[in-house]
Write a protein that binds this DNA or RNA. Sequence first.
DNA 1: CGTAACATACCAACTGGTCGGTTTGTTTGT
DNA 2: ACAAACAAACCGACCAGTTGGTATGTTACG
Lengths: 212, 212
Amino acid sequence: MAATPAGGTRVARGEARGRLLEAAVDLIRAQGLSATTVDDLCAAAGVTKGAFFHHFESKEALAVAAAQHWNTTTGAVFAAAAYHREATAAERVLAYVDLRSELIGGRPLEAVTCLVGTMVQEAYRSSPAVRDACGAAMLDHASTLEADLAEALADAGNPAGVDAPSLARHMIVVVQGAFVVAKAADDPLVAVESLGHLRRYLALLFGVAPFA
Amino acid sequence: MAATPAGGTRVARGEARGRLLEAAVDLIRAQGLSATTVDDLCAAAGVTKGAFFHHFESKEALAVAAAQHWNTTTGAVFAAAAYHREATAAERVLAYVDLRSELIGGRPLEAVTCLVGTMVQEAYRSSPAVRDACGAAMLDHASTLEADLAEALADAGNPAGVDAPSLARHMIVVVQGAFVVAKAADDPLVAVESLGHLRRYLALLFGVAPFA
DNA sequence: CGTAACATACCAACTGGTCGGTTTGTTTGT
DNA sequence: ACAAACAAACCGACCAGTTGGTATGTTACG
């Protein structure tokens, strides 16, 4: 693959870094990290290799930046989402799960994937920097659920003594696992199905009707 | 990396194929598929490239065979496990989850991983053959849980109307997700924690005490 | 203001090394 | 003798990263 932009459309000055990050998100989600070459990224972003290594010290550095970029952009989506407007904490948590289901069910299989979940399985041994960036992104997102979870558990009296941070991490576990199994089964519905089980577990813990 | 055996120990005739499969399981679990080179595999197996391509048509063919080999060997471990000897179906399912927890908790992080879960995220787009082999392995394992799940749900009256095959897949989802998040968090305990939540969900569905 | 000095952003060609796979030759069991 | 099982040298394609250079601002000083 040539290092020249595809289609001849040259990218405007100042946009190279951002376009490389978006290309990285797209390509790495679809192909994985090590199967995505620097030339692939440059071609998809419409920039040359010179621009790539001007902005990023190495391919690994791009991967770290892509994980942070992913955390920022997806974090903004969830921060702005409507589920925060539900009246009770339990309803907010369940609405978060519903939002996740909608995001998965409405898309083709190749969009049913998480950048940091894909990358960390490949890089956790070979690149501590990438692993840390992925771990930070995942646990950061988990922490945004903790307050509502703690409140919903407290509202229900929390007879089982469930730990809110642990439950937040479990929610991320189900989401990540759903991505993996959906790819293996070649069917996004498997992921939606599993989120239904997560939803029922949470409803049981909160003492509310499972599918109100 | 040279294609010659490391350490000088030459492999006995007839063992090359099996040793390549075991090397594939070890290396791909640790590094992922595309980061594992054919030369890496040959060196780890103590075999030359000639032997590799004598037994496998391509690297992709080895990946497919490795997924099947993984399914066979791990399937045998679970088929022979003691959890089948529990008295009730609910106890057998919960004992399965406990076995999973023990297998994870007792090992270093690099062993907390599943070959087919690692491979499918990289290969589901580029290689349908690998994706199908991984999918078959995962869903095959899930199906071994279905009979006990159906019986346990029936014993409890199954008021929620939970589907046993769907619940079996959810169990695999949690296991796979636990592997991903454990790597991201660099801590196997995150996986054990999540299996605790799965156990509680199952116990709630079965109407038994969560941690009897 | 104008312009010289500097800094940033980017390009295209290239390099050393690695990759999956092939070819050719050798050993071993039957 | 013959085929299966291996070894070893090799090949073209590809890959991450480098190099030397150009275009486009930005700053500072007279």
